[in-house]
Design a protein around this nucleic acid. Structure first.
Lengths: 331, 331
DNA sequence: CTGAAAGCGCTAACAC
DNA sequence: GTGTTAGCGCTTTCAG
């Protein structure tokens, strides 16, 4: 049997309440008895049981984190931001991968609630009606990180994807491409729709009709970026500017192009999205939209702490600034 | 107030014990009453409280995972393996980043115990005496993943780093480099020592003395790989084969070489270590040692489940097979 | 097959 | 300042 608060109380000749007080840093304890208790805690090697504490106090100092895939270079960065701020506020995180699978997502949310998390950070491309329903009836605060709920009814932290995509596309246009190609992820998600909208906006603004042939749907992977490049070079008189929805795909596009003897940026310019660490790990280095993943995670977690502390929050749908870094994949 | 097992019992006209039985799938319940209970659970929207359950049963179905840095492309892959198997066995993971900081590591271990995890997967370069002490007196099973404890006293899952490094170096030697360069990580860890030992073994076996000038200590980052390359080309008559301790550094080395007009593999051959996804995301693609990160995580978690179930395990220090993939950074 | 009752280890009033 | 006493919501004997 493990040693409990009761054992400490007995050994120190005080009540459990007093022990509890010193363990919790309650100031209403005479320094002398505090010291005495601390000593016997040390001597006995007492370690508070967080589960019992959680049951009694209804606080677990644990938050749930539902993430599509922790092995993704994009999401793992977000997760790091979340954990760092969680740690700062004395929370631990229960992390679960959802693979963007709706059933799994819904199940995980429920599991988190069963585990009595004090809050939940949720990431996932598709926020369905069911998701909103489940999240809105949550017993604890929820924050979305890098994920958009069209109803705007759940607190969230994002960047302005549409504007970012608009700027990226515009850069290509300014550099001389009349109608840049867009290599998009194929899954339907609010984020993707916004990126697409931004792309379209830039095209239209330059008085062009959107040419569907210049929109290539890929799978969000490096390999599918290579495939996209192969498709592109088969387009007659293909445009010399390509906007790619993620850095990883963009690397694939660049290498696919190079493998076909096309030079970047001399022959074709490429702009990515995210600014993952990959962007500087290619030759040429990748011009891309900076999405501050770490910060999004950190801010989402920070937002959550405010809700958990019942602090006042002015804006519950935070939009973080983005920017475009020009590196060597554009002229 | 939330709805409890007691509410369900009252509404269903049974005892809490019976409700508990159906919730836990205990077969000793008449189908009719099971159904009745299930219905009222559904109707009331009852959701079991895992914390209360944990306190009563002394099982939390949660395991702790201490990881150096989840945003690392290497460790995030391990984490994914861990979580997948954890999920398979109905466990959730509490994930915490240690940054390889000893104090933080020790503190995290303790936190995990306070949270009453049923087991712990630990990753970290340096297993000190204190670590061993704390881990050996753990109230729950522990498994090390991709981390070596020299005392071999704690269950672990690894590959044979020395042999792998030996093979990688030998490949370079076979390809014609008399004395390959080794770009190592500078932190002292058991894993690093083994890699170094393997390198040395290969050099000595080819009847050479180890030339300290050919051992370059870098920082495990892409950037320091580039720096290492810059150092290398300043070596007079530098060797034409380089073994690099991680893929990320290897990418840096390759790009650093290319930036200086050195062609890979024509002028210099490079072999990496790990086979992270980066290895196929460079040109030339990287020849490297395959370390099955995902599997290491998965097997470590599987091992842990065996301990938690008090199953019998034959070998508690698992060594997974490695291999070398030859891609285009070697001839 | 079902119920009663005793905790699990701690917090949180409430007294004193 | 400190102690007493209820619970928190559930599992788990032990009866029957």
């Amino acid at each position: 049997m493990n040693i409990t608060i009761y054992d400490v109380a007995r050994e120190a000749n005080v009540s459990m309440a007093t022990v509890s007080r010193v363990v919790n840093g309650n100031p209403n304890v005479k320094p002398a008895t505090r010291k005495k208790v601390l000593n016997t805690i040390e001597r006995l090697g007492y370690r508070p049981n967080a589960v019992a504490r959680g049951l009694a106090s209804k606080k677990t100092t644990t938050v749930g984190v539902i993430i599509p895939d922790i092995s993704s270079i994009f999401f793992s960065e977000l997760a790091r931001g979340i954990d760092d701020i969680a740690t700062m506020y004395k929370y631990n995180i229960i992390l679960s991968n959802s693979d963007q699978n709706k059933d799994k997502e819904l199940r995980l949310i429920n599991t988190m609630f069963e585990k009595q998390v004090d809050g939940l950070v949720y990431m996932g491309a598709n926020i369905s009606e069911e998701h909103v329903q489940q999240l809105k009836t949550s017993p604890v605060p929820v924050a979305l990180a890098a994920t958009i709920d069209s109803s705007e009814t759940i607190p969230s932290v994002n960047i302005d994807y549409e504007q970012a995509a608009y700027e990226a596309t515009s850069l290509l246009i300014e550099n001389g491409t009349k109608h840049p190609i867009y290599v998009s992820g194929q899954e339907t998600s609010a984020v993707n729709e916004k990126k697409y909208a931004g792309y379209v906006k830039a095209i239209k603004e330059s008085n062009k009709e959107v040419n569907e042939d210049y929109i290539i749907s890929a799978e969000f992977s490096y390999e599918s970026g290579i495939e996209a490049a192969n498709q592109i070079i088969n387009i007659k008189d293909y445009p010399t500017g390509i906007f790619v929805a993620t850095d990883e795909m963009a690397l694939g596009v660049i290498h696919g192009l190079q493998d076909n003897g096309v030079n970047v940026p001399e022959d074709v310019e490429v702009v990515g999205f995210d600014n993952t660490r990959l962007a500087t790990m290619v030759r040429p280095t990748l011009s891309t939209v900076v999405q501050p993943m770490y910060d999004i995670g950190a801010v989402a977690m920070r937002l959550l702490t405010k809700f958990m502390n019942k602090e006042n929050v002015e804006e519950q749908n935070v939009v973080l600034p983005h920017q475009i870094v020009k590196r060597n994949s554009t002229k």
